[in-house]
Design a protein around this nucleic acid. Structure first.
Lengths: 203, 203
DNA sequence: TACGTTCTGGATAGAACGTTCTAGTCAGAT
DNA sequence: ATCTGACTAGAACGTTCTATCCAGAACGTA
């Protein structure tokens, strides 16, 4: 049995953090284990003890952890704000700020491996899937709290996450955040228009 | 001077084609030059003659070529269809079909390197940027042909391309195309609602 | 103190990487 | 007949890659 069931400020945590950073910048394929070990000061023996599955298991763990962190952050934003529209605008504005601050070198720590490594590793693909689902659930709950129907909340939440990932991709290619604000404005408008703008025709 | 100024069914073309395929599946970082050379039967000497910049120059050329091809395909769809909404629905349905047919192993040949290699290579980043711009221009022209204002057409075109890239990311992570149809339906509804649904308030 | 487990350090293996290099082929111009 | 220069073949280069191994440190428990 390990030392304590509570948080470890250890090997495992340091590796997961470093891996999620590297996934954002370099992606899974271009991430070097040697760089990761050097930058964390962890030896390969320790690394393979904590993650017997090696690079792939570490990356999957990093995606899982950062995915849950981000979901919690989303929920925190909505807990602090009155409207879902405001929350979405806040999150997209934060994305624009982060991209700019990082010189567009950092992408989404889930979107990058989802794009580039999910075909090569089922573990990573599943971790990405779960992360996206957690985000959709978080947005969906915020919308339901404003009285949206279940189906419409899920659909809108999916649109938000999809738009987020697409916006990161386009903004990084352009090295320009204006697309993020355009997309965000579209989403906010649609959210404010309520849960029933695109449904079936009832005369 | 080379043989003929017309199309070459040669080294260069075969490498570009193979690279764009590999970018879709493996991305830039995980693409192996040896695999590329073996699968095309091109020797490394020939490759470095055609692309003195090596892997990076080849990848940038592949992104550029496939980006222009896709832009031409978009324009062809709109030339053959009556409405912009129909064209978008057609393109997204084709995406869903292609993803499913490839077992979700193939992504967007521009979106993948944009996500994973644009931080590492300026040449690739610029090629991705130009490809996205070409697509936005193609969609924008189709909307303008239906009477949309310039600004609104560009904004909507940006939304379409962004949604496309996001939809590929989410669908591949989920190994499920339903998100693509959800997003496509949203876009079609907004296009049919016309060029003025999200503008400023005028009482 | 002694023991068993958990964890660590670092050398090492063995393959794969992108690139470079030299020798060569082959049309067409002279 | 000779020269020229674009193009090709493929071995070899040095580096970097992930993964393995094992001796021993650290630690909780008896």
């Amino acid at each position: 049995m390990p030392k304590t069931p509570t948080a470890q400020p250890t090997t495992r945590t340091r590796l997961v953090t470093a891996m999620s950073r590297s996934l954002q910048v370099r992606g899974f394929g271009a991430t070097s284990m040697k760089d990761l070990l050097d930058s964390t000061g962890v030896s390969s023996g320790s690394m393979y003890h904590a993650f017997p599955g090696g690079k792939e298991e570490l990356a999957a763990a990093a995606v899982r952890e950062v995915g849950l962190d981000a979901a919690a952050r989303i929920r925190r934003v909505f807990a602090a704000r009155l409207t879902a529209a405001d929350g979405v605008a806040t999150i997209f504005a934060a994305l624009a700020r982060d991209l700019e601050a990082g010189g567009f070198r950092f992408g989404c720590p889930v979107g990058v491996p989802a794009t580039e490594a999910s075909a090569a590793s089922e573990g990573i693909q599943i971790a990405c899937d779960e992360a996206f689902d957690a985000w959709i659930a978080a947005y969906g709950d915020a919308l339901r709290a404003e009285g949206w129907d279940d189906d419409e909340a899920v659909t809108m939440a999916l649109s938000i996450v999809t738009a987020y990932e697409g916006a990161v991709t386009i903004a990084r290619a352009r090295r320009d955040t204006s697309a993020i604000f355009t997309i965000s404005h579209d989403l906010v408008t649609r959210i404010e228009a309520g849960g029933r703008p695109t449904t079936t025709e009832d005369p």
